[in-house]
């Protein structure tokens, strides 16, 4: 019961005020309520910590990695077991696996962020426009979506990479192209439930253009379900990227991409398990982190429970 306690209590009251005095306070208050709902879920916080950890590791990779991720000591350090010098051992080219995993986190983040930036907006745009416009626009956009949905994701991605040529940029592009259709479906379903509501009619009656209605009134309502879905999909995206890497169609050597690392380690899986095991564990942990985070976001952002 100190002065700082009293201070934090009043700040909390300020955030939860029923009568916010400014735009800022209203927005912060809303965010605070969502944050409290999020932190009520312990596992979600664990997920968030994992993802924050990933970001920190990626940012500080140069400081955290003791060795070069690409150049190994072929003469003395091939396929060493984990030790104090090489925490996760070394691979067949004598490279420190720990350093490679630390640098690999950058590529994982790169893939995940790029895919989210490309796929989510495409899905959101296609879905909301189709749902709001209806009629022919809807039919055409959704048939295109169906065509993409009809193929298994990895197979379609494979086809794209085969056409575009192997490489991590093309892998990202292929994954993005194959992952927007579910987002379009979600955005469309959400749009259909709100397009006939009175509050959308009220905006129509102010003379708002369809463009404005979709952009400013419908999209904000779809975004939270989309964020949840994208977060839950992150694990799948990482796995697809790893799968492409594993098949040699993603990141090319000597890039320390985790999927490619597993692929090159599979030859020694029985004798030198750490070569494939360490990047495998990294993928597992990060995927789990995104999944837990997604579940937590669902609790915090779900529009159906969000209005109390």
């Amino acid at each position: 019961m100190t002065a700082s306690d009293a201070g934090s209590l009043s700040r909390r009251e300020w955030l939860l005020s029923e009568r916010p005095a400014s735009r800022m306070q209203a927005r912060l208050g809303r965010a605070y309520v969502a944050w409290r709902r999020f932190t009520a879920n312990r596992l979600a916080v664990v997920g968030l910590l994992i993802i924050l950890g990933l970001v920190v590791v990626a940012a500080l990779a140069g400081m955290l990695a003791p060795y070069s991720p690409t150049v190994g000591d072929l003469k003395n350090a091939r396929l060493l077991a984990p030790s104090a010098a090489h925490w996760f051992g070394t691979d067949d080219l004598g490279r420190d696996i720990y350093s490679r995993i630390v640098y690999g986190s950058r590529w994982t983040l790169y893939v995940v962020i790029l895919v989210a930036i490309i796929a989510a907006p495409i899905g959101l745009l296609v879905g909301t426009v189709a749902g709001y416009a209806g009629g022919w626009t809807d039919a055409i956009l959704m048939r295109i979506t169906d065509i993409f949905l009809a193929f298994p994701k990895l197979v379609l991605a494979l086809a794209f990479v085969a056409a575009l040529g192997p490489g991590i940029e093309n892998a990202v592009l292929a994954i993005a192209i194959t992952s927007w259709p579910p987002y379009a479906r979600i955005a469309r379903a959400e749009t259909l439930t709100v397009r006939n509501s009175d509050y959308i009619k009220a905006v129509q009656l102010m003379g708002a253009s369809p463009f404005r209605i979709v952009l400013r009134h419908i999209m904000p309502l779809c975004i939270s379900s989309l964020i949840i879905r994208v977060t839950l999909d992150m694990a799948g995206i990482i796995l697809t990227a790893a799968g492409l890497g594993f098949l040699g169609l993603g990141a090319q050597p000597p890039l320390p991409e985790w999927g490619a690392m597993i692929a090159s380690g599979r030859r020694f899986i029985l004798d030198q398990w750490w070569v494939a095991g360490a990047p495998g564990a990294a993928i597992l942990i990060v995927s789990l982190g995104f999944n837990l985070l997604g579940d937590g976001l669902r609790d915090a952002l779900d529009p159906r429970s969000g209005d109390q």
Binding site: A26, D198, Y199, H217, P220
Partner: peptide
């Protein structure tokens, strides 16, 4: 209850 946008002040 239905005529005000749920996400707008």
């Amino acid at each position: 209850y239905g005529s005000l946008h749920p996400r707008q002040t």
